[in-house]
């Protein structure tokens, strides 16, 4: 029972954490971010199972997390009202070749970071972009102007 409660508490904590730290932090995997993610996982693991090395313990923890994940996904699917809370909402960050500074600022995205993302998607100039949307996953999707 203890393990299931631990898994539940840590799942809720990590869920809240991922919703509040900002999606860019989670989607960008710079070397430091990668190390940070590993450290985060390791810290959670220690609190989760502590000195329990048993298969039964692993089954309880993995089972609990799997059930919670499916339940969250199901609730998000069935209750559209909760979707913004559970999944977040997209934000338009570029319109008609112009960055929307207010939205970029809100998500702590610099224009340099935005143009880096553009280059990764083979877009050389922001002028070519009709829409750029920061998706709920933290990725930025670009829709080019039809004539570009």
């Amino acid at each position: 029972m203890d393990l299931a409660i631990r898994a539940l508490v840590l799942y809720a904590f990590v869920f809240i954490l991922t919703r509040v730290v900002g999606r860019r932090e989670l989607s960008s995997l710079q070397p430091f971010d990668l190390i940070l993610l590993i450290v985060l996982g390791d810290s959670i693991q220690q609190g989760l199972t502590q000195d329990d090395y048993s298969i039964t313990g692993a089954l309880i923890v993995v089972g609990t997390i799997a059930v919670l994940q499916v339940a969250t996904s199901y609730v998000s699917f069935r209750v559209p009202l909760l979707r913004p809370v559970l999944d977040g909402q997209p934000i338009v960050v570029v319109e008609d070749g112009k960055p929307i500074q207010k939205n970029l600022h809100r998500e702590r995205i610099s224009v340099e970071e935005l143009t880096e993302e553009m280059r990764l998607q083979q877009i050389a100039s922001i002028e070519e972009v009709q829409w750029a949307v920061l998706e709920t996953s933290g990725a930025i999707s670009f829709i080019k102007k039809t004539d570009s």
Binding site: V92, D96, N103, R106, W131
Partner: peptide
């Protein structure tokens, strides 16, 4: 919206102008 329509499921009021999302932050 200008020369090209907003992508599907993108609500410009909500997702660009952030109407009703002021408290989210």
């Amino acid at each position: 919206s200008g020369p090209v329509a907003a992508p599907d499921q993108i609500d410009l009021g909500r997702d660009r102008d952030l109407r009703g999302r002021g408290k989210d932050v």
